[in-house]
């Protein structure tokens, strides 16, 4: 079975490195994007199995990105998405859910927690 593909969408290089390191050690194939716009462009060329999305990003934030993604036609609209953000207010959770997030974790996040959630959220298109 080919490795599952995850795209990390976060503007902070250190965060991307941390996730990438954790996930690659566990056998995942990792893609990166610095903001929502770049993620959309990359996804239209090559879909992945799971998105890890930050909320506060330049050019296109995570909520706008998810809203746009879920309204696409074709299979990329249904890629599961995990929000990992420092925002922890109930209205942030609600906004993420309405935009199309499948789960929400609050930073900082331990490697084992990240892996446990990524493993369950990642779903190949049927």
């Amino acid at each position: 079975m080919s490795a599952m593909r995850v795209m990390i969408i976060d503007d902070a290089a250190l965060v991307r490195l941390y996730y990438r390191d954790t996930l690659e050690r566990a056998g995942w194939h990792v893609e990166e994007a610095l903001n929502g716009l770049e993620a959309l462009e990359k996804l239209l060329r090559q879909p992945v199995d799971l998105l890890i999305v930050d909320i506060n990003m330049p050019k296109m934030d995570g909520i706008t990105f998810l809203n746009t993604l879920r309204r696409q036609s074709g299979p990329i609209a249904g890629i599961p998405a995990l929000i990992i953000s420092t925002e922890s207010a109930p209205q942030d959770f609600a906004a993420a859910r309405e935009a199309g997030a499948n789960f929400y974790l609050v930073k900082p996040i331990q490697p084992d927690v990240l892996l446990a959630h990524v493993t369950l959220l990642c779903g190949a298109a049927s």
């Binding site: 299979p75 249904g78 935009a99 199309g100 499948n102 369950l120 959220l121 990642c122 298109a125």
Partner: peptide, 21 residues
């Protein structure tokens, strides 16, 4: 969630996650 244009995408994603679990 209430229905809107994002519903098909959200439903598909939620079902992929559920199927996986």
């Amino acid at each position: 969630l209430p229905q809107d244009e994002g519903t098909p995408g959200r439903t598909a994603a939620a079902m992929r996650v559920m199927q996986n679990i």
